[in-house]
Design a protein around this nucleic acid. Sequence first.
DNA 1: GTGAAAGCGCTAACAA
DNA 2: TTGTTAGCGCTTTCAC
Lengths: 303, 303
Amino acid sequence: MKAIEELGYYPNAFARGLRARRTNTIGFVVSDYKALNVFVSPYSAGILTGTLGHLKANGYYMLVYPMPVGEDLAEFDALLGSGRLDGIVVRLVPDAPATDALLDRIAATHIPCVCIEQPGAARFGFSAITYDDRRAACEATKYLLAQGHRRIGHLLGDQRYPTARNRLEGYQRALADGGPGVDEVLVSGGDWLPSTARASVAQFLSLAERPTAIFAASDSLAIAAIEELQSRHVRIPEDMAVIGFDDIEMASWMEPALTTVRIPLYDIGQRAAEQVLEILQAETREPARLETVPLELMIRKSA
Amino acid sequence: MKAIEELGYYPNAFARGLRARRTNTIGFVVSDYKALNVFVSPYSAGILTGTLGHLKANGYYMLVYPMPVGEDLAEFDALLGSGRLDGIVVRLVPDAPATDALLDRIAATHIPCVCIEQPGAARFGFSAITYDDRRAACEATKYLLAQGHRRIGHLLGDQRYPTARNRLEGYQRALADGGPGVDEVLVSGGDWLPSTARASVAQFLSLAERPTAIFAASDSLAIAAIEELQSRHVRIPEDMAVIGFDDIEMASWMEPALTTVRIPLYDIGQRAAEQVLEILQAETREPARLETVPLELMIRKSA
DNA sequence: GTGAAAGCGCTAACAA
DNA sequence: TTGTTAGCGCTTTCAC
């Protein structure tokens, strides 16, 4: 020990890894259409932060690997085959079949893997951390209904994403269940662009029977909608109530503070990290665990 | 080759690394007060994206390592000593001396290293990618002066950050150079919180001699200021011009679109990656290179 | 050119 | 308990 101290000795991770077959490294793989978004979306960022925080606290390193949908898997295979990773956390933004090939490769390696967001095809037997968009969207819409709103618009997210589709379904279900039913005219958009949200709002406002509330599939859509409304002197929430989804940082400090569905991103990331490490430490191969974290409607000023 | 194909053989990265002393891994180290912000700030995210994009394209992996100021360096030393990293990109958010111990350790290992943001103490001889906040802040303020503004407020960033201090200095220099001079009453704030910006704006508005323009040390400060102004029915830019700093995504789509200083985050990250890889490939140890990327004033609607 | 062998720095198994 | 040794899977060197 004295010599270690004096000589500044540190064990070589590669020699150790080679012999012990432990690398102390977890891969964070993101499968998305534009996977380099890994960091840029605040959404992704929150999850990564949770994962990294837990891994670091437990002496593990994190390697980030973006995997754009449609990109050749050869290099990813090389990574998997290289024995660099003890475990994998994979965030699947699109759903099957776009992500199937990826999961297939991971499954073939027997590297412990936990999925975030989409559980991945059940046949792979991976554990997963998910959340129930559909239910939360339903509750948000029901909250508007409970406030007396009868005409409620929905700003759609990009429908390639299951998350966007689930939010739509929740909205539809709330309106169908003893509500006024869905009016297709009040469902508009289809991507994550603020400009699209503004155009949808303009269109809503031009309707003979205007909506009195809007449920947006994301906070940035909701914020763009609010800006458009404010520029037209529509008061929020008096003339138009607005609810978002995600609870990005800005939601709480904007004016009016945004009522939105909070996704506990940090927790999700952390739970995923906890799960991989548990699998790693477990003696026997436990059955896959599907964990669903609860979402919470944050009632603030915009609705 | 046929056998490789058939057997699905991939070389073991650790055996290879052990023998060849190449790991194909670059560490991205972030030194900040709250280093887990690595991802969450859009700022950081842009840089990381640029770095990762270039590294991946060149067959390198990226390991992200947050290093909070004041945290014990033992584990970081273990990482450095472990031989896991071929090179390091380090983003130094605070400046010396907070970051000196960190650079000291890196220098001791002789692992090629490139600094982002702060050049790092010259004695370490590391290359760096920086940008000139001071000059850009000066230009932004001069632009306001050229528009005829005489009373220009400044929303200060957290003065622990050199970046915030430089922006203040640029503002001061513009006002001193043949301008109306600095009025301390118009310099307010001192952290990155939107609530502080709003309070400063309220205070500006209560002044007998109100400012007619505001230069904010960051976009989020500028956005909060605009919200406060709009809530008080102050028109932008007619009654108050506002300029931000950073050019976050939202700046271009908000209403009114924010005039701000654009920091080419992706480019900065990419250049840093390019530089480490160049050092790695170079036969001889080249002298350190200090690269300064230009910043651009994006003139939109708010000023 | 092609092939054999040494050894990178550890860990785990085994011997003393 | 303490000490010795084989070998993880490569790359590089050296002999052929």
